[in-house]
Design a protein around this nucleic acid. Structure first.
Length: 571
RNA sequence: UCCGGCAUAGCUCAGUCGGUAGAGCAGGCGGCUGUUAACCGCCUUGUCACAGGUUCGAGUCCUGUUGCCGGAGCCA
């Protein structure tokens, strides 16, 4: 589905055609490229001083001179160059380009800065980035789209044939070449962009070896192929946008908690604790696998291992963060977590990031309120700060990418107990694959129906049967449910799961016994209930799941830079 | 882990009933144009995933292996 069809030349690309525009998409998400009104004021702040302008002019002259010298040296060293061989290593200016850069005192502007109006037409500007496309005009100029990743849009460089290295280098630029361009920002004479850079100097910082086999060709690639080129795929439109949104979402998460008085607790990656619950864990060991020490019974003697006991990668920071919650009151953990489950689906990773806040002197109502406020804040931040990338997702990946986020941000979350939800599902005139009965866990189809059809907006389902939930969730007075909650959202289903924690030692112990969990393994967790216990609650948000929801990207492997899945830890 | 699908040029794919392989893009050369994934002409490129089997003959049919994808389970 991902790469159906081969009509890269034609139109009629559906919104779900994820591969089509991953690389060079001329998608115009640039709106007000340069604010003409008042832009001179901005310019003065950044580049307008006489001294800076002179520096830039000097820089251009300097680089021109060095370019000329360099070309001469190249020809002398390399007879092949004269024949026009493009693969000649000796002609490549890479070593010299360091000198060029070192000798350039001018401040380089990012494309994001330029498009934000920090330079105005007429300003001298230095730009550095990677070539997306080159289009030549025999009339004596080339159009080179350069991207530096600072924002979605590339900047068009107009290079004229009077450049000293025009025929020798500019016309040999291919997709992926790294360039540094000094020039003058100008209002574009063409359509499709408001401004462009009239090049005074085009310096090739890094050539592309063998352009024919450069993996990121200016065409559609399948998502599967891009995963195999994970080191180069950030140069595509899609993965670049994902990377920027990931950053913005991460920053928004930290900002939300910081602004609301939560402390970020760095819970451990390696855990020797046995009490993190079910789920296969990755073992951490320094033992010689071929010849491990054995106990008298013939078992592997982990007492001789690095930590003196078995150790694993964490599957959740929750239990650890609870201990800091019962001291700092409002805390959260945000880091990588690991599951060694052999689950190969589009929604699972062996290594993923999780956000887990924990709040003391608080109950399930506070938990739901926090989740709602938190989700609205972080989604709003992405909409506000990455409008360019979100426009791309809405245009090329998932039509409703923006609208459903806006709907969530505006919505008043509904609330339903599990028992009420089951009643509603049983009354629904819908043929569910899994029959509905009290005591069962809600399937994805049930969650989707509840949030999309029953209430038609984001919702919290609370108070689930105790028998289908974890040992640490607080038992309700009815004796058969626990104070757990899931946040469900249209278009995805469950996005957050949380609970009020069992703060009563006797109830917790009874629960541990019931589930056959050895109390001694939970000694420090139980201590928290012995020494100044308080009602507290928290929830977990899978960061990549949130990324999928935001971007509409269907496979979780494409919203994380280097995905780890069964049989795949390349890069 | 289970079920299903797929594997052909650097990339995206076509390949009919079994008869030794094709298009577009990329790349090269030329033309044309303030171009917009430009366009036009010509040219270059193959261990048909791997290992067996059936057959006069296998990209095509059969078996196995590996990898990838989707769904389920598990979950975030």
């Amino acid at each position: 589905m991902i790469a159906a069809g081969a009509d890269e030349a034609g139109g009629g690309r559906a919104g779900h055609d994820r591969a089509a525009y991953t690389h060079l998409a001329p998608v115009s998400t640039a709106r007000s490229l340069v604010r003409t009104e008042g832009s001179s004021g901005v310019r003065h702040r950044r580049l307008g001083s006489r001294r800076e302008s002179m520096t830039i002019s000097h820089d251009i002259a300097l680089l021109s001179q060095r370019r000329a010298e360099h070309s001469g040296a190249c020809t002398a060293k390399c007879p092949e160059c004269a024949t026009g061989s493009s693969g000649c290593a000796a002609r490549r200016p890479a070593p010299d380009s360091r000198r060029h850069a070192a000798g350039a005192p001018m401040k380089t502007l990012s494309i994001a800065d330029i498009l934000a109006g920090k330079a105005a037409p007429g300003d001298a500007v230095a730009l550095q980035g990677w070539v997306r496309t080159r289009r030549d005009s025999k009339a004596g100029l080339s159009f080179v789209h350069v991207s530096d990743g600072s924002c979605f849009d590339p900047l068009q460089v107009v290079a004229k044939s009077d450049l000293p290295n025009y025929a020798d280098e500019v016309q040999r630029l291919t997709t992926g070449c790294a360039v540094r361009v000094l020039g003058t920002l100008a209002a574009s004479k063409g359509k499709g962009q408001a401004v462009e850079l009239a090049a005074g100097v085009v310096e090739v910082v890094g050539w592309v070896d063998d352009p024919e086999t450069y993996p990121m060709q200016p065409k559609r690639h399948s998502m599967e192929y891009l995963r195999e080129q994970a080191h180069l795929r950030p140069r595509t439109n899609l993965i670049g946008a994902v990377a920027r949104v990931r950053h913005t979402l991460s920053q928004a998460i930290h900002r939300y908690f910081h602004q609301h008085g939560y402390f970020w607790v760095h819970t451990p990656i390696i855990t020797a604790s046995d009490c993190e619950g079910a789920g296969e864990m990755f073992r951490v060991s320094t033992l010689d696998l071929a010849n491990p020490p054995r106990t008298a019974e013939g078992r592997v003697d982990f007492g001789q291992d690095f930590f003196g006991r078995e150790a694993h990668l964490t599957v959740s920071g929750q239990l650890n963060v609870e201990s800091y919650c019962l001291a700092l009151s409002k805390v959260y953990t945000f880091g990588p977590t690991f599951r060694a489950e052999n689950s190969n689906t589009r929604r699972h990773l062996a290594e993923f990031w999780m956000v887990e806040p924990e709040l003391a002197f608080a109950d399930l109502n506070d938990d739901v309120a926090l989740a709602e406020d938190f989700l609205k804040f972080i989604f709003r931040a992405v909409l506000d700060e990455r409008a360019d990338d979100m426009a791309f997702f809405a245009q090329r990946v998932e039509k409703s990418a923006i609208s459903r986020l806006e709907a969530l941000v505006e919505a008043d979350f509904a609330r339903l107990t599990y028992t009420e939800a089951i009643a509603a599902l049983q009354k629904a005139n819908v043929a569910f694959e899994f029959p509905v009965s009290w005591g069962m866990d809600l399937q994805s189809e049930h969650e989707r129906w509840l949030t999309e059809h029953h209430v038609g907006r984001p919702m919290a389902v609370t108070d689930y049967p105790r028998d289908i939930k974890a040992f640490y969730m607080r038992q309700n007075d009815d004796g058969r449910t626990v104070a757990a909650m899931d946040i469900l959202a249209p278009g995805i289903g469950e996005i957050i799961g949380g609970s009020q924690r069992e703060e009563r030692l006797d109830v917790l112990d009874a629960r541990l016994d019931e589930m056959g969990l050895p109390k001694e393994d939970y000694w420090w967790y139980r201590d928290l209930r012995r020494f100044g216990t308080v009602p507290h609650c928290g929830f977990g948000l899978g960061f990549e799941r949130a990324m999928m929801y935001i971007t509409g990207v269907e496979n979780i492997r494409d919203v994380i830079p280097f995905p780890r899945t069964p049989r795949n830890a390349d890069f």
